[in-house]
Amino acid sequence: MKFGIMVSEGPYTHQASDSAYNFAKAALEKGHEIYRVFFYHDGVNNGTAFTTPPQDDRNIVNRWSELAQQHNLDLVVCVAAAQRRGIVDADEQKRHGKSGNNLAPGFRISGLGQLVEAGIQCDRLVTFGD
């Protein structure tokens, strides 16, 4: 089956991103396709490379980056939601004259159309949120 995933909450505060990750990993192991993971609302905070949890805790951001690398996953952070919350890639940094950028490897910034498109293209769109 072809799955799309939406993650609507940030890391650590909510279980949403952990559950989405576990779901994606299990689905891939079972031979399903993950068409796209779309990060919206505070979910965009799952894409900041500045995340530095204590060493004995899981690194939620790195975990997504690694899964993306292993399975060529499309991790999309919503541009409008990201701009509000200070998630910036090199292009956005230049465009808005910011002092740095923080989008983690394996993530890309794009528009909300990517979420709607995932709904159209996938057999199931699964939401992990509040």
Binding site: Y40, H41, G111, L112, G113, L115, V116, I120
Partner: peptide
């Protein structure tokens, strides 16, 4: 608010 933004984008599809 952000939900409404998705609704408006969906109209283009």
């Amino acid at each position: 608010l952000e939900g409404l933004e998705v609704v408006l984008i969906s109209a283009a599809f």
